[in-house]
Amino acid sequence: MIKAIITASALALAALSSAAFAHGSTKPRHGGVTQVSGEMVIELVRSAKGVDVYVVEEDEPVAATGLDGKLTITAGGAKQAVVLAPGEGNLLSAPGLAVPAGAKVVVALTGKADGAKAFATFDVK
């Protein structure tokens, strides 16, 4: 009886562990914050140069040239939409964009080839 309980517990933990890593690592790679959307991990990075978004799927970079991206920023009751420009590799950028603390940022991505959509919402601190 006890052996069956231990075996069942071990199987449940193993299933939980593999489910947690199904999309690859969600650890930020560029100093930003991440959200999971479907199979993608989206990282939002704010800096003095603007806003960058990095996209990976199962720990592999997703080519930015294959995506259309847009940010919607809500701050102080006002909304602003900004188109993301594809950069090298898996980088999409909004150069010169400043996002204030307390803003809500929605990243919307659409695959150019298949029209697949991914969304991530970030509460900026």
Rank of each mutant, 00 (worst) to 15 (best):
R46E: 10
D59L: 11
E58N: 15
A75T: 05
A63W: 09
G69T: 04
T74F: 07
L67N: 11
T65V: 13
P61V: 08
A75L: 11
A78T: 12
V51S: 02
D68R: 12
T65N: 15
V45H: 07
L71T: 02
D59I: 03
R46H: 05
R46Y: 00
D52I: 06
E58I: 04
E58D: 04
A75E: 00
L71C: 08
E58T: 03
G77Q: 02
P61D: 05
I73P: 05
L44V: 08
D68K: 15
T72D: 01
G69P: 01
D59K: 10
E58L: 05
D52K: 15
D68W: 07
A48C: 10
A63Y: 05
D68I: 09
I73A: 06
T65I: 08
E60G: 08
V55W: 04
T74S: 06
D59C: 07
A64S: 14
L44M: 13
G50M: 07
G77P: 13
I73C: 12
T72N: 02
V45C: 04
L44E: 03
S47E: 06
A75Q: 03
K49A: 14
Y54K: 02
A48G: 13
V45Q: 08
Y54N: 02
Y54P: 01
T74L: 11
D52A: 10
K49W: 06
V45K: 04
L71M: 10
L71R: 08
E43C: 09
A78I: 12
R46N: 08
V55N: 06
T72V: 04
V51Y: 02
T72F: 01
E43M: 11
K70L: 12
D52P: 03
V62A: 10
Y54E: 13
A64G: 04
E43D: 12
A48N: 11
V55S: 06
L67P: 11
K49H: 12
K70V: 11
G50P: 03
D68P: 00
D59T: 04
T65M: 11
G77W: 03
A48R: 12
T72H: 00
E43G: 02
E60R: 15
A64Q: 05
G50R: 09
V55F: 01
E57T: 05
G77H: 13
E60F: 14
V53I: 14
V62W: 10
S47V: 01
R46S: 05
V45D: 00
V62K: 15
K70P: 03
V45S: 09
K49D: 13
V62I: 15
L44R: 11
V51P: 00
V51F: 07
G66A: 07
Y54W: 14
V56D: 09
V53L: 10
A78K: 15
A64V: 02
T72W: 01
V53A: 07
G69C: 14
A64E: 08
A75V: 04
I73N: 00
A78W: 03
A78S: 12
V56W: 10
A63D: 11
